[in-house]
Simulated assay, not measured.
Amino acid sequence: MESSLLFVSIVSSRIFKFSVGEAVDGTSTEVAVHEEAIAQLSEPLRILTKSGPSARAGKATWKDVSKDTFERFVQYAYTGDYSIPKTEKRRFVPRAEELPKLESEEPQATAAPESEPNPPAESEPEKISEEHVLTTDFRTLSLPLLAPRDNYEGTCEPSVDFEKDHSYSNVFLSHASLYVLGHVQLIENLKALALYKLHKTLCTFELDSENIGDITDLARYAYSGEDKNAEEGTGGLRGLVCQYMAIHARELHKDVKFMNLLVGGGQIVQDFIKLQLQRVN
C-alpha cells in the first residue's frame, strides 16, 4: 500500500526541470522529472525542490553531473534501481611487443623431459599465493544493500561473464559517478547500491596488460576532487578502489598512466601506502 501511495504522490507532483552536463559533456541537457521522485530521496533534495530559489523557479542546474549519470539517477529515483551501460569493444589492441610485461608473462622454466617426471608427492599441500588469498578476501567483502531493488534482469544486474576484448571504463565510471552523486546529496541507499554493483563488476574483471587503463580511469575519477568523498578516508568508493589496487599492485606499477597518477601525490598515495602496509603487517 505504501508503494502505491508513493507512486501516486510522485506522478501527481509538479514537473521539475534539471539542466545537467555542461561541465562534463560540453553541452547542457534539460531533463524534466516529477518533483516528488527527487524530493523523497534525501533532505538536501527535498530542500532543493520544495524551498528556496530553485523550488520557486521549478528548475536547478547540475553542471558537473553528466547526462548519462543523471538519466541513471532519475531511473533510480523512480524505481529504486538503475541500468548498467554495456561494455564497449576496444578500438585498439596493442601489439604484443608494445605491451608492458606482467609477472605472469615472464619466461617459464624449461619443463623436465617426459622420461624424468618429477610430480609432487600426493601428501604435499597445495601452495596458495598471498595474491590469491587477498583476491579471495576482496571477493568476500560484505557490501550490503540498504533498500530493496527491482533488479531488472539483463539491465540492472552486473554481468558475471567477463568480455576480454571489451573496455570496462564506462561501466566502472557509471557506478562511481552515481556513488559520488549519492554522497553529495546524502542518498545512502544509492551509495550502497552503486558500491555493491562496482564490487561485483571488479570481481568479474580479469586484469591484464591490455585493460589496466580501465582501472586507472576508475582510480583517477575516485580520487579527483578532494570534495568528492575525502572524509571517508579508505572507506566507501575510495576504499574499494584502493583495496583492488593494493591487491594488483604488481601488475599496476608497470603501467605508465597508473604510475603517473601516483606521481601526482595526494590522498590516493596516502591510502595506497596505508593498505600496502596493512598487507605487510
Rank of each mutant, 00 (worst) to 15 (best):
F92G: 02
E105V: 02
A121V: 11
L6I: 13
T136S: 13
S12A: 14
N151E: 12
S159I: 06
I38F: 10
G266P: 01
K86Y: 12
K164V: 09
T69R: 11
L237F: 01
S9L: 05
K228I: 08
G213N: 14
F138L: 02
S159R: 03
G21S: 03
E36T: 03
R95I: 04
L45D: 10
H248T: 00
N281Y: 12
S19R: 05
M259H: 00
Y168F: 05
F73W: 11
Y82L: 10
S174P: 08
A222C: 08
E210A: 01
W62F: 15
L277Q: 08
A192W: 04
M1G: 03
V33K: 09
S129L: 04
V133A: 05
S209D: 04
Y244D: 05
A192H: 12
P148L: 11
A32Y: 01
E43F: 07
G265P: 08
K50C: 12
L134E: 14
S12E: 13
T140D: 03
N229D: 07
V241R: 04
T204C: 12
A57N: 15
A176D: 09
G225P: 02
L181E: 00
G235H: 02
L252Q: 07
N281F: 15
V133Q: 12
S224G: 06
A246P: 01
L207A: 01
Q270L: 00
I247G: 00
N118R: 05
V11I: 13
L261G: 15
S129M: 09
R46V: 05
H132E: 15
V93T: 15
T204W: 02
V33C: 11
V74G: 07
D217N: 10
V11W: 07
E116W: 07
E251K: 13
E116L: 15
E232N: 08
A219D: 06
D150T: 14
L141K: 14
F138W: 07
R56Y: 08
P100F: 07
E30V: 10
R220A: 13
E130L: 13
E97W: 06
D81E: 00
L218D: 06
N118T: 04
P100D: 12
E30F: 03
I84R: 10
P125F: 15
R91L: 10
A77H: 03
I47E: 11
L181Q: 12
V180H: 08
Q75W: 04
G225R: 06
A111E: 04
Y76V: 13
Y179F: 14
Y168H: 01
Y76R: 10
E124Q: 14
E88Y: 05
P144H: 03
Y223F: 10
Q278S: 04
Q267T: 06
G21T: 09
D161M: 04
E126G: 00
L207C: 10
L277K: 09
F138Y: 10
Y82C: 13
A57F: 08
L252G: 00
F7M: 11
E71H: 10
R46P: 00
I128A: 02
E105S: 13
P85E: 05
V171E: 12
L173V: 05
P53W: 02
V133F: 05
P125L: 04
A109H: 08
P53R: 12
K86W: 00
H34Q: 12
A32W: 02
K50R: 15
K86F: 07
Q75R: 09
I247C: 05
F205L: 05
R149E: 11
P100C: 01
